[in-house]
């Protein structure tokens, strides 16, 4: 089966480029007529999302309403939209895989496989075998720290180091009830060390923000010294001169695959499809790399300071684990941390 798939893909690669280009031109024309699209996005930082939206507008003259928020809030909005029979969102980009599993099961997604799929790094291709949602961003949850307050040799090396009493009052995290990154990280920690991990973490009185990017602010300000943060936003901030560094934990950086999907019943189907193609373009990858995300296109080099993904030990929960696990850990988290 798998072999057959690769064979088909090879054939497609051999014969399709010309046809695909023609299709893309037609798609672009149709999309331009629709003129705009709305993008609920929890990937990237605000700047990254805004930059990507602007890049698309510059390329095609199609306006993108970027609604950047945390994964759970984006999903909450989407659910309210659906509950009220409104289709406002055209492309939905969450960092919580569980959202897609549920939306797909309820028939809320439009099936579309971007023509550009073959051009992205193989590791990110065909995330959903049915073609409803596709990897459009990837990032890591790693250990991060403030270099002005913590020497590299003192920095935590593995996840359990965060439980050390010396970090009491000095740890920062996001909130799984808001952030998909944080939810996935919590799930992974639970899988590795059981919920006791968080019972112990609670004793270290972490400062809990909402987005995973909150940890960047907390470290920058010196409010906290170490964190479970995202590599992209941390390195981006470090590149701007802030005293930040990442430490890849020996027990595994948590890899977050963040997909995007087109909503069923979208009022801008062509623009949405074109946008999916765009997210797989070299331009989008460059913007992504600029904001220290992992570029999907192999032609675009990794952001400076980031270890290539091949050199990092990564861990990652499965889609099924995420779907069931995240709502569960949100409740557990609230019981443990008070809200």
């Amino acid at each position: 089966m798998k072999r057959l798939g690769s064979l088909a893909l090879a054939l497609a690669l051999a014969f399709l480029p010309l046809a695909a280009r023609a299709d893309l031109n037609a798609l672009t024309e149709a999309a331009k007529k629709e003129g705009e699209l709305t993008w609920y996005v929890a990937h990237y930082t605000s700047e990254g999302a805004e930059d990507l939206g602007r890049g698309f507008t510059e390329m095609y003259g199609i306006k993108v309403n970027v609604v950047r928020t945390t994964a759970q809030v984006a999903y909450q909005r989407l659910l309210q939209d659906l509950k009220n029979n409104q289709t406002i969102c055209d492309v939905f980009s969450s960092t919580d895989l569980g959202h897609y599993a549920r939306l797909k099961a309820e028939g809320r997604l439009d099936k579309y496989v971007p023509e550009n799929t073959p051009k992205i790094s193989e590791a990110f291709r065909n995330f959903d075998s049915d073609g409803y949602f596709h990897t459009t961003a990837a990032g890591l949850v790693v250990l991060t720290y403030n270099t002005a307050k913590v020497k590299p040799e003192d920095a935590p090396k593995k996840w359990e180091d965060l439980l050390d009493i010396k970090w009491k009052g000095k740890v920062s995290t996001g909130h799984p009830g808001f952030s998909g990154y944080v939810g996935t990280w919590v799930l992974s920690m639970k899988k590795l060390y059981g919920w006791q991990y968080f019972d112990k973490l609670e004793k270290n009185k972490p400062q809990i923000g909402r987005s995973i990017n909150d940890t960047v602010t907390a470290l920058n300000a010196g409010e906290r010294q170490v964190a479970a943060g995202s590599d992209g936003s941390t390195l981006f901030s470090a590149a701007r001169g802030n005293p930040l560094a990442v430490s890849y934990p020996s027990d595994g950086s948590v890899l977050i695959i963040s997909p995007s999907a087109i909503m069923k019943g979208t009022k801008h189907p062509n623009a949405a499809k074109l946008f999916m193609e765009y997210l797989y373009s070299i331009e989008a990858s460059k913007i992504n790399a600029k904001h220290f995300g992992i570029p999907l296109r192999p032609e675009v080099p990794s952001p400076p300071g980031a270890k290539p993904i091949s050199e990092i030990k990564v861990i990652r929960p499965t889609v099924t684990e995420v779907e069931k696990g995240i709502p569960e850990v949100i409740e557990q988290w609230r019981d443990t941390f008070g809200n």
Partner: peptide, 15 residues
Amino acid sequence: RFNVVTTQLFQFFGN
């Protein structure tokens, strides 16, 4: 890390 009525209400509007 504590909850009040309004933040709890917001959670009920959540997921």
